[in-house]
Design a protein around this nucleic acid. Structure first.
Lengths: 201, 201
DNA sequence: CCTCTAACGGACAGCGTTCTCCGTTTCGCT
DNA sequence: AGCGAAACGGAGAACGCTGTCCGTTAGAGG
């Protein structure tokens, strides 16, 4: 059997409708996840204009869909982050970027939640994404700390904690208030709510 | 009909089993809500050792039960808060108290979530509790601000935002890490993650 | 144009949860 | 002890959601 039968190409090219549907599903999911995190699967299918079976053929379950959306969002964040000039201020800029993206999709919120719940446990579908997020932050953390921009007792975990804090503010807030509230929250996390100290204590 | 029939007391005293069951239900709910926020109602009934119908007779729906638990927790917080010496530092102490209680029950998390989602909309079952929480904070906010302990651009809303941030850190975290993580988060929110400024900027 | 196959879609089975119905028990009073 | 009323409990109806089944459709190559 060194050759294949006529009508069965060895490795079939991806059919056009498959690509199209996958795109439609991801777009639909992203749009719906922008508003709420607990979107029913059939809503996603409906919005994408496909049957539920198609959805499940592309993504074996709910988590897989969320992960796929989150992955695309992370891609976008990474791309935007690439435009940030490296240096002590890069971490702060990255945080603003991430929080702004969290406002736009609950998929990223899931990633942040997963990070805080089981930081080191692999096996989760989201784990790879958590690692990516962690990596992006860690990369900018070191220079910032070295330059003395950050408190000296700070760890990367603390920075991730800040993302968890932003999550708390965003979720359950009507969409049109998320931007302002999360920006303010990040501002508070960066500078604190107490009056500036005179010295370095 | 100025007098009542023998077997129907005008305003019946609360039957002992009613009181007992109500207590058992609230205790069961509080214990279960300490771990997770999405406890099934029948679990609460089972833990309390009563039937589901009894649960629903006492609390018309899920939200009513949560609200009742939250109310008791808020009572406790208020009592503890009374022991805080008034003054500029009272707000910070109160925040620690509230966050510590949020760690111990998801009922309070619900209140905080409700606060952020519709701060001014009455009608909600939790609205009264939100008001109480808001009141407790506001009471200590003014002195702190006047004493210059707080940043001068700060509003009470910002302080509530800090509670929302703590919520984000707490929820979805395994119970045994909540204390440390939320305390650290509060610390960050109070002082910020950036290095101390030399002057007052 | 024809055929083969992979992909599709709607309907539905299954599940976990909320809330209700109704026969039975318990309380409080005499 | 006896009685009426109120509260109880388990069983189950109703619901929303997830994930699957199978007859039908449509893509791609000959």
């Amino acid at each position: 059997m060194p050759h294949v039968s006529p009508t069965t190409p060895a490795s079939a090219a991806v059919r056009s409708d498959v690509q199209r549907n996958r795109r439609a599903l991801l777009d639909a999911a992203r749009q719906l996840l922008a508003v709420r995190g607990d979107v029913p699967m059939y809503e996603v299918a409906r919005r994408a204009g496909v049957g539920q079976a198609t959805l499940y053929r592309h993504f074996p379950d709910r988590r897989a869909l969320i992960a796929a959306v989150a992955e695309e969002v992370l891609d976008a964040v990474e791309e935007e982050a690439a435009a940030i000039p490296p240096g002590p201020g890069a971490l702060e800029a990255l945080l603003r970027l991430i929080v702004a993206s969290m406002v736009r999709t609950h998929a990223l919120l899931q990633v942040v939640e997963d990070e805080s719940s089981n930081p080191r446990e692999p096996g989760t579908l989201l784990h790879g994404l958590v690692q990516r997020l962690l990596g992006m932050v860690a990369e900018r953390f070191a220079p910032a700390k070295a330059a003395g921009v950050l408190r000296q007792d700070l760890t990367v975990d603390d920075v991730m904690l800040v993302l968890g804090m932003a999550k708390g503010v965003i979720e359950g807030l009507p969409a049109d208030e998320r931007d302002a509230a999360s920006a303010r929250a990040l501002e508070l996390a960066l500078h604190g709510i107490l009056a500036p100290r005179r010295r370095g204590g």
